[in-house]
Each structure stands twice: as structure tokens, then as C-alpha cells.
Nucleic acid binder design. Structure first.
Lengths: 335, 335
DNA sequence: TTGAAAGCGCTAACAC
DNA sequence: GTGTTAGCGCTTTCAA
């Protein structure tokens, strides 16, 4: 057998019909093919194990059934849950997802975006925090704009920094709500474990919490936006020895790291110190003490982004705001 | 501006050279283009914001830079970690990953495999447990074989049920090792919380454990292969009231579910009951009590699969065995 | 070194 | 209804 897949031409020949008829019979069109020929074509296709070449189809049709998804890190449950939502919505639409994981590296982000662009998918979804860097945002636009100009569609799941349809989590508000609840629970001296300042999520969650807090301004310790960051930040916090009765880590992974650090230092959560996170990662819903956090509809957000990006484009970018819901659990008992 | 991206023809025209020259200047080839023309082409391309059309390139070249990845559920940390490994290896090779998540549904798996096949990527990686179903395996082969026949490459990360290169976890052996360790720790009456019998991973882990166990055969409770399955299985186990001093859940998610069920029933882990899992999901490394489990090099497995699938094909499918490492933590203290 | 032209596999006018 | 044919954007002989 040849190292070559059967083509439509092969099928047409085998069925004794024209290329056009074969195309119409197999891949639909308004034109109708006589039942007999139709059957003959299907049979031939079957016999030859014919599979349409989607690349050729997109070229000829001028439209593709690929959508790109760019995330910071697909191993991070935050993004993998979004990806799952987006992928399942894509499947329903008969679309295929091209996945790129940047590792949080802006340079990589640009390169992968370019790669996605080259594939001429019908849309690209950018998930992951925008960093507050004018130069980088400009470079992103240099990729995004021509893609849109050429008929592509782009949406983001992030802080609304790019002029594209965006699913935006109201981080500030949710963090504010959380601060209020923490206050109501009787805590008096909170600390915030935050990520790098350039990361907008991180900043907004921190600021939102501070806004919602009525007592003295919380102590803030910054580190990486992941588990190890939470661990390290917590260690530094403990070592600097301030009086603190509760800690808000700006995401669940950091909160887990923080709790691990507490354990290392003999601090018992929540007896000695309360801990709260953000995201409500489902894999972590069974940890003990159960983590107080802000629930985000991650799967839904992935679906929403796909929906937006498939909608007809509008002149003005749409914003779909998503609200987080404070979930109080054992890690922040009333005191 | 036109809703149409600049093409190579546009660039050639703009630079006042032939199509062929433009192609050679921009997208490399053995032929060398005179420096002056080269510069002129690059400039024109830049001015026009030209991006090569990867689809057209694949068609013309007869080879694509897409690889497909089919997983059971991208939201499951097991698969998202594998995907991360594979994606990062792919990036290094300048390849793009098309991601499909089947939801564990065999029908869906077939459809998505077909979709992947249509895209004419250079390779497809199938990650996820094979179910032991002759009819389904045959249908899979009906997709896989012609793809390979036509020059495509396929690899799997699973039990070696398909005649393709496979990264295979030695589940049986690792589970056996775990059983031995559990025995050495002083446990006497274990139960196994397993998944559906058709799932080969699930079965092999269960059987491996039983093999490694020297006392009376462990009680076995089967349910779904996920968190809720662990929860439900554990409830049923408790309700049926047998004497058990330790539980092996065949994956970490089930173990988490099992621990949650214990909490519900007032059983304290590990004081009243020890629990062990399998996979060593990184998101769960900080839970308390720390989970005894079998560590799998998931990221590495993703990389390995890509590597295999890009290697020259060999007549006989390769098998790369991966060993799990038993990690004893607090959830199974010596007693 | 450069250019003209023949495909790659398919769709969509356009004719019959 | 069905067939012919001109593209889609690119690479790659083959000549010049």
C-alpha cells in the first residue's frame, strides 16, 4: 500500500463519477446527488478508507475548524479546568482545539501566538493573566490585530487589557467580599500572600482584599503565583514575626503552599492561623482543613470564551463579567 | 483593509520578485537567494504583515507540524500533567498540539480520533486507559491503521493494547510494591477501592496489589475511577462493616474521595484507617494527612510519548516501560 | 541565482 | 443532476 491517504480524486475514480459529484456526495452541499450515485460514492469512499483532508477543505472553503487556546500552564488546574470547558464546547461545535502552554513566559507567549496565527484557525482564545507591561501588550496587539483584520476572531479570559472580547473575572470585587466575610468572622489582623506585582490578577485580588478590609491595612508578602510562592511567602511572613490571625493567599495553590509552610513551622491551621485562597480548584475541595476560598466557574468560563469568540464580531469588544462566590469552610472558622 | 491576510503572492509582487524567490527567501530552502533580493522580500513581508499559511505549507510540502493528543479528561490532573509534558516537548520541536478530551466515552474517542485524522497531523498520541473491549479496540484500529498506512505516526500512553509505540506504566508491579510496603508497615486487613472492571489501569492496579499482598485476599469495592467513585466506594465499604485497617484507592483522586467519606463517617485517617493512592498528583502533595501513593513521572511520560511518535517508525511497536515509585507518607504510618 | 509552472486535495462557480 | 475548471496559498521541479 502507498504511504499516502486516499483522496477525493481516488474516490471519484473508483466510483466512476466526477470529482465534484464525489465532493457533493461526501461532504455535503446544497446541490443534491442522485441516490444511486450517492450510494456508489459512499461505497467507494468506504472501500478506500477515505477521510477528507481538513487542511485542503479549509483552504478551498476559506474557513477552518480549528481554534487556538493559549494558556499559561496547562498543568495548572486553573487552566486545565478552563481548557476542559473550552474543549467540550468546541467538540459540540465540531471544532478542534490547538493547545499552547506558555509557561508564563511573555516571549514564549508571543511565539506561540504567532504559531497559532500561522495555522489560520478561525479563532484564538488567550487565557491567563495579562501582565502589566506596555511593551508586551503592544507586541501582543501586533499579532492580534492583523489576525482580526484578516477575519480571525480573538477572545481573552483575563483582566481586560486587550481590545478583544473578554471574559473578565471580577477579582477585585470577589476579594473585597472575601475580606468582608473574614472580618465578619472575627479576624483582626490579616496578611495577604500575593504574586508578582506585574500580574494583574494577583494585584487586583490583593487590592480588592485591602479595599474590603476595614481595620489596619493588611501586611502584604509577595512571591511567585504558585504553590512554592505560597510556601516561601508564608515562611517569610512567619519569620518576620508579625501578629497575624489570618492569611489570604491570592490563589488556592499558594494557599496550599502556605499551609504546608505552617505545618513546617508548627503552626496549626486554623487553630493558630486561618487561611483562605481563591479559585476553588476542584481537586482541592477535599483537603483538610477545608479551604475557604472564592469559587470561580472555571469550566463555564472556558465555554463562555468559546461562545464569545464564535459570535459575530462587534465593533466594540464585549466584556462578560464573572463573579466569584465566597465559600467559607473550615480553614477560617468564626472566632 | 481587506478581510484577508497577505499572501506570499502579495509579498512577491510587493518585492518585485517571483513567487518562488519569495518562498525561498522567507521559508528557507536549499536554494540560496541573493542578499539584495532576500532583503527586499523580507522588507515587503514585513510591510505587509505577512504570516505564512501553515495549512497551505503542509499541503504543498506534504507534511504538517501538528500533532494530536487524545486524553480522557483534560481537567483531570493526571492528564493535564501528561499534556503539559507533551506540549512542552512539542514546542521545542516547533510543533503544535491539537487537544481532544473524550470524557472517557469510547464513542467520543472514536469521533475525536477521526477528527484528528482528518487534520492530517504528523502524529497522534492516545493517552488514557484502554478499556478491555474487543469491539472498541477493533474500531480504534480501523482509524489508527489507515492513518499509519498513510504515513502518520501513532503512540499511546496506556496499557499496551494497541499495536503502536506505547509508554506503558508498570501498574501491576508498582501496585505490588505498594502492597508489600503496606504489609511491612504492619497492616493486616486491606481493602481495594477500584474503578470499573473494563478499565485496564484500574484492574491492573487492583490485581497487582492483590498479588503483592500476602495475607487474606483484600476486600474489593468497585466504583467510578474518580473522586466521587472513591467517595462512594468508601461509603459502601464502611456500611458493609468489614474489619479493615487500610485502604488502597487505585488513584489519588479516589483516595481523596475515600478520605472525604471517612471524614463524613467520623473515621479518622490514619488513626482509624490508613489510606493510600496512586499517581502522586502534584496538586495533592500538600494535603494532610500526606498521602502515601505511587509516584508516576507524568510530565516525563508526555515527553516520552512525543519522542517515540517522532522517531522513525519501526516494524515492531516499541514499548517503553515506566516504573512507579512507592512514596510512603503520613496516611499509612507504621503500626 | 531566478522564474514559470505543475501540483498538494478540495470546493464552488459555471456550464451542460 | 452532473461535470469542467478555476482557484485556495504554498513548495518544488525544471528550464533558463
Amino acid at each position: 500500500m502507498p504511504a499516502r491517504a486516499a483522496t477525493l480524486t481516488d474516490v471519484a475514480k473508483e466510483a466512476g463519477v466526477s470529482l465534484a459529484t464525489a465532493s457533493r456526495a461526501l461532504n455535503g452541499s446544497d446541490r443534491v446527488v442522485r441516490a444511486e450515485l450517492h450510494a456508489r460514492v459512499l461505497e467507494a469512499a468506504n472501500r478506500l478508507g477515505y477521510t477528507p483532508n481538513a487542511q485542503a477543505q479549509s483552504m478551498a472553503r476559506g474557513s477552518s475548524d480549528l481554534v487556538g487556546l493559549l494558556v499559561n500552564d496547562i498543568a495548572d488546574p486553573y487552566f486545565s479546568t478552563i481548557a476542559a470547558g473550552l474543549a467540550s464546547a468546541a467538540e459540540e461545535q465540531g471544532l478542534l482545539v490547538m493547545l499552547c502552554s506558555t509557561g508564563g513566559d511573555p516571549g514564549q507567549e508571543l511565539e506561540l501566538l504567532a504559531a497559532l496565527r500561522r495555522q489560520r484557525g478561525r479563532a484564538i482564545v488567550l487565557a491567563g493573566s495579562r501582565i502589566d507591561d506596555r511593551a508586551h501588550l503592544r507586541k501582543l496587539s501586533e499579532q492580534v490585530d492583523p489576525f482580526i483584520e484578516a477575519g480571525g476572531r480573538v477572545a481573552a479570559i483575563s483582566e481586560p487589557k486587550l481590545p478583544v472580547d473578554t471574559v473578565v473575572v471580577d477579582n477585585k470585587r470577589a476579594a473585597r467580599d472575601l475580606a468582608v466575610r473574614i472580618g465578619e468572622l472575627g479576624y483582626r489582623r490579616p496578611a495577604v500572600l500575593t504574586g508578582p506585582d506585574e500580574l494583574l490578577v494577583s494585584r487586583n485580588r490583593r487590592d480588592g482584599f485591602a479595599e474590603g478590609w476595614t481595620g489596619d491595612a493588611p501586611i502584604v508578602v509577595a512571591d511567585e503565583f504558585n504553590r512554592d510562592g505560597g510556601f516561601n511567602a508564608m515562611q517569610r511572613l512567619v519569620d518576620s514575626g508579625p501578629e497575624v490571625d489570618c492569611v489570604f493567599a491570592v490563589n488556592d495553590l499558594m494557599a496550599m503552599g502556605a499551609m504546608a509552610a505552617c505545618r513546617d513551622r508548627g503552626i496549626e491551621v486554623p487553630r493558630d492561623l486561618a487561611v483562605a485562597g481563591f479559585d476553588d480548584i476542584s481537586t482541592l475541595r477535599d483537603v483538610t482543613p477545608a479551604l475557604t476560598t472564592v469559587r470561580l466557574p472555571l469550566t463555564e468560563m472556558g465555554r463562555m470564551a468559546l461562545e464569545m469568540v464564535l459570535n459575530d464580531p462587534v465593533a466594540k469588544p464585549r466584556r462578560r463579567k464573572v463573579q466569584g462566590e465566597v465559600i467559607v469552610r473550615e480553614s477560617t472558622p468564626a472566632r
